[in-house]
Write a protein that binds this DNA or RNA. Sequence first.
DNA 1: TCCTATGTTGTATG
DNA 2: ACATACAACATAGG
Length: 271
Amino acid sequence: MPELGEVDFFRRKWDVALGERVDRVTLKAGARTFKGTDLAAIEGSLPGRALRSSEAAGKQMLFRFGTDGWLGLHLGMSGNLGVRPPDFKPGAHDKLVLYTTKHALVYNDPRMFGRVRFAVGPKAPLWWSSIAPSLASKEFSQKAVAAFLHRRSRTAVKSVLLMQERFPGIGNWMADEILWRAAIHPLRLAGSLESSEIEALWRECRWVARQALKIIGVEHRKLPATWLFPHRWREGGRDPRTGTLLRREQVGGRTTCWSPARQKLRTARQS
DNA sequence: TCCTATGTTGTATG
DNA sequence: ACATACAACATAGG
């Protein structure tokens, strides 16, 4: 279940092994998980190096080993991280396992949409350093959001929110949550938003991201019933604010949930 | 059997 | 070159 908060939750799991040296690794090659990644470099360079730090940016994670080892993980649709005892035997979908004397750090993904990257060098590799500025950062400004919406003016705002180049970490449920809070219909074209709506969208992006990191990323609690999230999948689910029925439909190829009572396609002025 | 899935990317078209 | 739309990817579960 990996969007911003879930990614950070999984990322923290491996922190139990901070400072521990990797003795050996197992990996399940084949298919796309390791596409473009040098398997021999992982097998040859990780053993002997200790886990020094972890961080997350958007939906990506970075684990640093020794002074110059950079391991990047992306969980795709169904990936997860776990920690097991050091005698752990990898199962069918355990794509990468790092063994220390105390732990087995497991990257598991039943599907293959996730991604493992690895580099050795003094500087962060491009796949890490080129990730867009965090939703919490100063660079993620209302102005930057407005400019991006303008550039994608003919696309539904729901689809635009999923673009990682400007909204790193936002996934399907977060996008719906943000639009619901901002009272913007998911099918509105990005270029049609008024400045007050852009301001609301920007504000809710930051608020939802901050709360998700706190509630899911740190405390790993369920999201409160005051959110759209707990109601969005159930047939007959209702808007927790208005009590009216929610609607679900494909937008840009993704199932999208919104509250017709709260999120209108046309503004009062247009109609 | 058919449909869905919290994601990205390659490709075709304008 | 840029913007847009969508099929494709792999697998499990309802």
